[in-house]
Amino acid sequence: MGFTEMPSKERRLGDAVENFLETKRKKKRPEQTIKGYRWMIKKVNRALTEAGYDPYPNKWTEDTVNFLLDDVYCESQPGVVRREFSILNSYLMFHGNDIKEKMELEWQEDERKNVHWLTFAQARTIEQEAKGFERIVVHLELHIGLRRVEVLRLTVKDIQMGYFNVLGKGRRGGKWRQNPFDPETNAELNHFFELRDMEIRKARAKNPAVVVPDNLLIYERGGELFPYKRTAVDGMLKRIQERTGVEFSNHVLRRQFAKELHMSGEPISKISELLGHKDEKTTKLYIGIDMDQKVDSMNRLAQWRAQQTAQMGLPQNRGIFDEASKVSGQSGNHHSIEPDGPFSNVNNLWPFVLAAAC
């Protein structure tokens, strides 16, 4: 009597993917689209397997989804997350798993929210309006540069004399780094631990045998203490948004941290280390270049060219100001334009710009 060989786990997982894709093929989805679905689902399955999660679709739990959001998609634009999770949800539902539906996840509507920076004034407004536990979350992301998942993973033991031990992305493969305090950190921690101790006292009043988690962020409910989850942290920031009218996310605060470091003159290499980036190219995306910086660059270039021209004894390139000086009766030096003349307002130069363009 022969024995039927049981299919391997990899084969069963592959069949689960292909069976789902076949339903899309029957709905006349283009093969190129189906190919994209396959690539995306396999990418997610590899990440789950490497992190020690069961990738089979009917085994996904809330922890599985949170891992993907906090580690795999944490730096993706909201539009990408929304689209890919829509496909993943169809994949799960096909296999009888409605965990994503039960979690009632909310997505940012505007994709640009994940790629903009705050103004300096907006960042300070957020800090001033943060209350209670909100203060430490804002401080850790805006002043220390932590990811949301890193904030949630922080334990009391990770707080050292003058620095945090930070466990980076990856359930098992996350790398540790050390991020130093900034001048305000001690005061923020003192305020936070007063609130944390209040939560512990409330729990012990109801349940003297309550177990206190090592997690830094904890809350009391029914005499028990629980670590904060990503939805609770997101809720904190949402309340600050409602009070201030400033739109931002956990990731925007972290990007702002990088931006302000760059504006203060810190080199890319140091910023990259503080952010826990493997590649400085990623750090450069965080920093970005705004219009004011572009204008400053152009002004510095013009000054350098003028200096080089003067040193070489060459005539200045007067360009459009030649025409302006002819009309105003002044010399070719654009600094001598009459204060109240026809070119004292830059808008009066537009006729010459248009003439040159024609």
Score class of each variant (00 low, 15 high):
Glu134Lys: 05
Ala121Tyr: 06
Glu141Ser: 13
Tyr91Cys: 05
Phe193Gln: 04
Phe193Val: 05
Glu188Tyr: 07
Arg148Val: 07
Ile126Ala: 14
Glu109Tyr: 02
Leu105Ala: 12
Phe120Trp: 11
Ser76Phe: 01
Ile136Met: 12
Ala130Lys: 10
His116Asn: 07
Asn179Cys: 15
Ala130Gln: 12
Asn190Thr: 13
Lys100Thr: 13
Val166Gly: 04
Arg135Tyr: 07
Val156Asn: 10
Lys131Trp: 06
Ile144Thr: 14
Arg147Pro: 07
Gly96His: 06
Phe85Arg: 04
Ala187Pro: 00
Glu127Thr: 11
Ile200Trp: 05
Arg112Gly: 12
Lys169Ala: 13
Gly79Asn: 14
Met93Val: 11
Glu111Ile: 00
Glu84Ile: 00
Asn186Glu: 15
Glu199His: 02
His139Ala: 09
Glu141Gly: 13
Arg147Met: 09
Gly162Thr: 14
Val137Gly: 02
Phe85Ser: 09
Phe192Met: 15
Arg147Ser: 09
Trp117Ala: 09
Lys175Tyr: 00
Gln178Pro: 00
Glu134Pro: 13
Ala121Phe: 03
Val138Phe: 05
Tyr91Asn: 05
Gly145Pro: 03
Cys74Gln: 03
Gln108Asn: 14
Gly168Tyr: 03
Gly173Trp: 09
Phe94His: 15
Ala123Cys: 07
Leu195Cys: 09
Ile144Trp: 02
Lys100Ile: 15
Arg177Lys: 02
Arg148Thr: 05
Arg83Gly: 10
Ser86Ile: 01
Ala203Gly: 06
Leu146Arg: 05
Phe192Val: 14
Ile126Asn: 13
Leu92Val: 08
Met198Glu: 15
Ile159Thr: 01
Val137Ile: 14
Arg171Lys: 13
Gln122Pro: 01
Asn89Trp: 01
Trp107Leu: 13
Arg147Gly: 09
Glu194His: 11
Met198Thr: 15
Pro78Ser: 14
Arg204Gln: 12
Ala187Gln: 07
Leu105Phe: 09
Tyr163Lys: 11
Asn186Arg: 15
Ser86Tyr: 09
Pro183Arg: 03
Met103Phe: 04
Leu152Tyr: 08
Leu167His: 00
Ala130Ser: 15
Glu106Gly: 10
Glu111Pro: 08
Val151Leu: 00
Cys74Leu: 04
Leu105His: 10
Arg204Cys: 04
Glu184Lys: 11
Gln178Glu: 10
